[in-house]
Amino acid sequence: MNIDKSKKRIAKKIKMGFQGYPELSIAYSGSHADLAQQVTIAFVEEQGAEPMLQSFTSTADAREDEIIQSTIVKVMERSGAKTVVLVPGVLVSGVEGIS
C-alpha cells in the first residue's frame, strides 16, 4: 500500500473519534520535535485492560516511512480496533538515538 493511502486510512479512523474498544493509540517520538524516529502503538482490548505495546524505529521520519505506515494500517485491521487515537506531535526523548 502506498504511503498516501496508508496515511489517509489512519487519518480517517482517527477523525471518527471514540467508537468503543478495542482502542489503538499511536505515538511518535524522536530526538527532536521535527523528526519522529520511533512509533509506538498501544492496543487496549477493553476499558481498564493493560495496553499491549509494539514499537517500530526508522532512521528517517517514521511518519513518512511507507513500511511503517502500512504496518500501522495492518495492525488496525487485524486487531479490529474500533477507535484509533494519535498522540499529538512528536514526543522528544532526551537521549541521542532511540533504541
Rank of each mutant, 00 (worst) to 15 (best):
I98F: 03
R9S: 06
E96H: 14
S29V: 11
T83Q: 03
A42K: 06
E23L: 07
A42R: 10
K74R: 08
L24I: 11
V75E: 01
V95C: 13
I72R: 00
S99K: 15
L86T: 00
S99E: 13
S58W: 01
R63Y: 05
I10A: 04
Y28Q: 06
V75R: 01
G89M: 14
G89N: 09
T71F: 03
A49N: 11
K5D: 14
I98Y: 03
G94Q: 10
G89L: 12
V87T: 14
I68Y: 01
A62R: 04
G97S: 08
D4G: 14
V95H: 07
A42S: 10
D34H: 04
V95P: 11
V92M: 02
D65C: 09
T83P: 05
G17S: 06
S29F: 10
D34W: 12
I26N: 02
V90L: 06
V44F: 06
S99N: 14
A81R: 04
Q37H: 10
Q19E: 06
I10Q: 02
G17W: 04
V75N: 01
T57M: 11
S70N: 13
A36N: 00
T59R: 07
V84P: 06
S70I: 03
Q47T: 10
D61F: 01
K7P: 02
G17V: 01
P22G: 02
D34R: 01
P51S: 05
K8F: 09
M1Y: 08
Q47V: 09
G48P: 00
T57I: 10
K74I: 15
I68H: 00
A42T: 11
D4R: 15
I26P: 00
S93I: 15
E64T: 11
S55A: 12
V92L: 04
I26M: 13
G48W: 02
D61M: 02
E77Y: 10
S55K: 09
H32M: 15
T40C: 13
K82E: 15
I3Y: 04
M52L: 07
Q47D: 12
K74V: 10
S79P: 01
E66V: 08
K12G: 05
V90W: 01
V85H: 10
T83V: 00
P51L: 03
R63N: 05
I98M: 09
T71H: 13
T57A: 00
G17Y: 02
L91I: 13
Q38P: 02
S93H: 09
L24W: 06
S31Q: 15
A36T: 01
S99G: 14
D34Y: 15
K15R: 14
Q19C: 10
K13I: 00
D4N: 10
F56P: 07
E45T: 06
Q69M: 11
K8S: 15
S6E: 05
S55L: 05
V85Y: 05
A60R: 08
I67C: 06
I10S: 01
Q38C: 12
S55R: 12
